[in-house]
């Protein structure tokens, strides 16, 4: 017998936790190999951020910046970070849906492994890719003339953004586990991605929006994350924003970790 515990015994709670950790590392190993073999995914994960950075700065920058009386690039870059992380979460959704449609996950479900590991491996690998993508976006921003207040601030901003993206990755995984067809997942992402992205303080301050939109645009997760990241970049970290962003991230994890695992496990 090659199993670590005798086959006639049900695994104990300790076994389960150990296996979950061990299997997550295994799946992370697998997903990192896959990530390394698909460098185009890194390109896709930064392309939206790069577009927004370049277009918004050079197309809308003059109009928005002069109206608000600020340097628009300084306002824009932290928002673009958060958008990039959101795009990474959308890639988790697409990637996991592809996995599900290819049938390799059916083999995973027939194996004596922790099922949360299948999703955790992917979301962690995607967070690592996101981190690289964010560094690339930050380098481009520097070239365009953006200035961080300090290196520590920049690192903290990128780490917080990665954490928020990790929370959204689990939301993306839950959608993929429910819907399963990659093209459908792609269509659906328009419905959650764009409202969160555009009705937020990522690109414009909330006080420039109509009154009925302001409460949503101020407190939705992308906005609080953008505000928190902006504070870190500028050297004026606001603890309320950071706590709200962390709260949203934890909230996403609390809801979508169990939900995505349940949807994945029950799928035919």
């Amino acid at each position: 017998m090659i199993t670590t515990a005798p086959a006639h015994l049900a695994p104990s709670a300790r076994d389960r936790i150990r296996w979950a950790a061990q299997d997550t590392l295994t799946m992370l190993w697998r997903d990192m190999i896959r990530t390394a073999r698909q460098p185009e995914l890194l390109v896709f994960s930064v392309v939206m951020g790069v577009f927004f950075l370049v277009l918004f700065n050079y197309v809308f920058g003059g109009a928005i910046g002069s109206g608000a009386g600020v340097d628009y690039l300084q306002f824009l870059v932290p928002g673009v970070f958060v958008i990039t992380a959101l795009q990474g979460a959308q890639q988790t959704s697409m990637g996991f849906a592809t996995d599900l449609s290819e049938g390799v996950t059916d083999r995973f479900r027939s194996l004596p492994m922790s099922q949360v590991a299948v999703i955790a491996g992917r979301t962690i690998a995607d967070a690592a890719r996101n981190l690289v993508g964010l560094v690339l976006v930050a380098l481009l921003a520097l070239v365009m003339g953006y200035r961080f207040d300090s290196a520590q601030g920049a690192i903290a901003a990128i780490l917080l953004t990665t954490a928020v993206g990790f929370g959204f990755s689990w939301l993306g995984a839950a959608i993929a586990a429910k819907v399963r067809q990659p093209d459908m997942v792609g269509m659906l992402s328009m419905f959650w991605l764009f409202p969160l992205m555009l009705a937020s303080t990522a690109f414009t301050p909330a006080d420039s929006m109509p009154g009925w939109l302001q409460p949503f645009a101020t407190y939705q997760p992308i906005s609080v994350a953008a505000d928190a990241v902006r504070g870190l970049c500028e050297g004026t970290p606001a603890s309320t924003d950071i706590i709200l962003a962390a709260g949203w991230t934890i909230g996403l994890l609390v809801v979508f970790v169990p939900l995505s695992v349940r949807l994945y496990r029950n799928g035919a």
């Binding site: 670590t4 194996l111 004596p112």
Partner: peptide, 10 residues
């Protein structure tokens, strides 16, 4: 290797 690890082969 992936499946061997998931089957917990030493």
């Amino acid at each position: 290797e992936l499946f061997a690890r998931l089957y917990k082969l030493p």
